[in-house]
Amino acid sequence: MTHFIPRLYPTTKAWLVLGIILCSIFIPGYWFQYSIFLVALVLAMLSGVAKRYTSLFLKSIFIISLFIFIIQTFLVYHDHIIGSWYIFKVSSTGLQASLTMTSKIVAIGAILIWFFQVTQVKDIAAAMQNAGWNKKLIFVMLSTMQLIPQMTSMMNTIADAQRSRGVETEGNLITRMKSFVPMLGPVVLTSIEQNEERVLTLESRAFSNRQRPTLMVPVNKTKADYLLSWIIIIIMLGIFYWGVFK
């Protein structure tokens, strides 16, 4: 099971994400939305990424939800004050507003964190290519994901080199600010030099050709994907119908 979910076709998982996003936007109330956190947690456990999922969730979504509660409930002026302490006034309207707002953020954020933890970007790119998306868009996406770690390591090399020739990276604020350009400048200039070579390479390999390229890592839909896609779509339509119209 741990390998089953990450190996599913990306579109299958995307259907689930899309369904949950639409349902949590349109279904009134907040119980359904908050329960998505648990659903995504169970899914993360099944895919073997529960630890990372929880830590990412706490670091981003939980903190922002907490802030929203504090600001909306205590500080924004609303009617129906149910209690007050010093300058803080607790209002039921504000509480209601923050419940609706945070519940949606929790639902959408949770399912998105899960999705990106179990789906690799190269699989998404392959799926997009199979679906006939723009080739240039896919290339830019993939090459961004490759370039970020490359540039980070290049920055570390350059930082070491600059430090060894005497650029100060510690000290007061102005000293640290001054070291910014000698650190970042060479990174940019090197990448730009490489950029021209990359253009030549791509052109010599017929990148601008309109033909569909052959995939190095083919990603194929299995029977389980078709079955699961339909199950997910039907369940989501059902939840949507029951939640919105009943």
Partner: peptide, 18 residues
């Protein structure tokens, strides 16, 4: 969106991250 500008996009994104 010519090829040279297109390949600047990944550089820009990584530059912001770095």
């Amino acid at each position: 969106f010519n090829l040279l500008a297109l390949l600047l996009i990944p550089i820009g994104v990584s530059l912001s991250v770095v």
